[in-house]
């Protein structure tokens, strides 16, 4: 059995945008995007606005057809077997709308369940189950959707993706515009779902949030993949330095030279009793080497502070690298 639940291979997509009655302009949204999503993981698809994330999400969920390339979900081709793909994929596209405003969240979910081929009894049962799972109480069952807060709408959108209990979830910015508490609830839910074996592809702009929940990150920019890997691996690949602040009782003159000879230093400076080091490489190796040098030179440490690069730093570095 394949370990990759989603395979995106050299996908291209161009939109024709009409400008006026006759004039047309083509926009290349995807220019040969390739990456894989491992089963049972949370995979983040990142990129600035207009990078092609939503287009890719729509292609994976059979809403759009790619111009070229191949997308497989659980081994099923999205172009040749859309019906089968629709059965195994749950999608969230826009958390603020996408439902009938005059129907309640519950009624919207039953409608969706029926459309997906569930019997009425199953659709009603699943709608209740998933609403409970996302934390919406029964009082919201009768209220029309237009009276829901953004947090409630986000929960309904995720509940919709779960109605058919799909193995793969594709979520486009599921926490966009949510308050802290609602965003946290959604994040916790995603982690819980991933632990239960679901494969989740998520897009978003909140790097802190993505770093907390994702096992793998793909960054796309102007329709191309610019970086791909585990968040930690990505930071290493992009050569982002770790910042180490050492507070020592005394800082001998030759210590800088000794550190430079052992550790790949990007920058180093003194600030009163502090030695600030920017070094490239694996955190554990750098710390180990540094401690050995200090012990060897009999320099006691008063305090140490290690600041690792964030996913946001990696993201910005990846985008700057392209530009």
């Amino acid at each position: 059995m394949t370990t990759h639940c989603i395979i995106v291979d050299n996908v291209r997509k161009t939109y024709i945008v009409r400008e006026g009655i006759r004039k047309k302009r083509s926009v290349e949204a995807l220019r040969g995007v390739s990456f894989n999503v491992r089963c049972g993981t949370v995979h983040a698809l990142l990129g600035p606005n207009g990078a092609g994330k939503t287009t890719l999400v729509k292609i994976m969920s059979t809403i759009l057809l790619p111009d070229d390339g191949r997308v497989q979900v659980l081994g099923l081709d999205v172009v040749r077997e859309p019906d089968k793909v629709r059965k195994v994929v749950g999608v969230v596209l826009d958390i603020s709308k996408g439902f009938y405003f005059t129907l309640s969240g519950y009624e919207n979910l039953v409608f969706y369940g029926l459309l997906k081929g569930l019997s009425k009894r199953d659709a009603e049962r699943r709608a209740r189950e998933v609403l409970e799972l996302v934390g919406l109480d029964e009082s919201s069952y009768k209220r029309p959707y237009h009276t829901y807060s953004l947090g409630m709408r986000a929960r309904v959108a995720i509940a919709k993706a779960l109605v058919t209990d799909p193995e793969v979830l594709i979520l486009d910015e599921p926490t966009l515009g949510l308050d802290v508490e609602s965003a946290r609830a959604v994040r916790d839910l995603l982690v819980k779902l991933a632990r239960s074996g679901k494969t989740i592809l998520v897009t978003g702009h909140n790097m802190h949030e993505i770093e907390m929940i994702s096992n793998h990150v793909t960054i796309i920019h102007k329709g191309k993949v610019v970086a791909d890997g585990h968040p930690e691996e990505l930071k290493l690949k992009l050569g982002l330095p770790i910042k180490i602040v050492l507070r020592l009782r005394e800082i001998p003159r030759d210590i800088e030279e000794k550190i430079r000879s052992e550790i790949p230093i990007v920058n180093m400076c003194r600030e009163e009793d502090k030695l600030i080091i920017y070094a490239r490489g694996r955190r554990e190796n750098i710390v180990q080497s540094l401690l050995e040098i200090l012990r060897h030179n009999n320099l006691p440490i008063i305090d140490v502070q290690i600041v690792e690069p964030t996913l946001e730093d990696a993201y910005i570095a990846a985008l700057r690298g392209v530009e």
Binding site: K58, S61, T62, I63, R86, V89, V91, L93, D94, K97, G98, F99, Y100, F101, Y112, L115, K116, K160
Partner: peptide, 12 residues
């Protein structure tokens, strides 16, 4: 207006 076309297009 309500962009429900996605819900339908991803279902049938």
């Amino acid at each position: 207006v309500i962009d429900i076309l996605h819900l339908i297009a991803q279902s049938t």
